[in-house]
Write a protein that binds this DNA or RNA. Sequence first.
DNA 1: GCTTGGAGGCGTCACGCCGC
DNA 2: GCGGCGTGACGCCTCCAAGC
Length: 205
Amino acid sequence: MWWHQHNLCFRHPVEEDYSGDLEEKVATIAEKDESAESEGVIDSHKRREILSRRPSYRKILNELSSDVPGVPKIEEEKSEEEGTPPNIATMAVPTSIYQTSTGQYTATGDMPTYQIRAPTTALPQGVVMAASPGSLHSPQQLAEEATRKRELRLMKNREAAKECRRRKKEYVKCLESRVAVLEVQNKKLIEELETLKDICSPKTD
DNA sequence: GCTTGGAGGCGTCACGCCGC
DNA sequence: GCGGCGTGACGCCTCCAAGC
């Protein structure tokens, strides 16, 4: 339902209720295709079709904010906590505190090992822009260049994924608060309606 | 204490969109 | 047309609470 909010109509290209039911629908389609020959390929294609593009959270929220006063915009750059520019230095261990599912907090010291390994890929020792492609000759150099490019891409994507998740959470929070506001409004309007009804139709007794 | 299931986070891959 | 970005999906991990 995310994409079909009141007054918004960010309609998903395929489904209105994206969040929970989509998986079921994907599964249904997958079942239907089971008899097909290259089912794996078809499956993944269908899945991709179903999951085709939606507007980014930033875009959605910004549209929402221009539409509805009081809805915060998602900043282009990180604004709140981290005021540091997006450079390699920021790759260091994220934050000192994490919220657990129960609302408790855990110090970074508890960081699982597989998370700790992440920053180690933090851009290979400052040699990022070392060699220009034109100056590469040997296969080994080419391989190194490819590896370096891959590392860079992975690192950027890692950061992008984090940012994306952060925005998504922010977006969900925003929608939740909007739901709360609308519920209150709705309640008030119902009450108002009842009052007017009472006034307009006086008792016959 | 052990097991199990759910929640939440992370890294990576794949792919559509967009700006150049 | 191409490269970079944003994001869904997937698989993995940790943490926690409940049940035994």
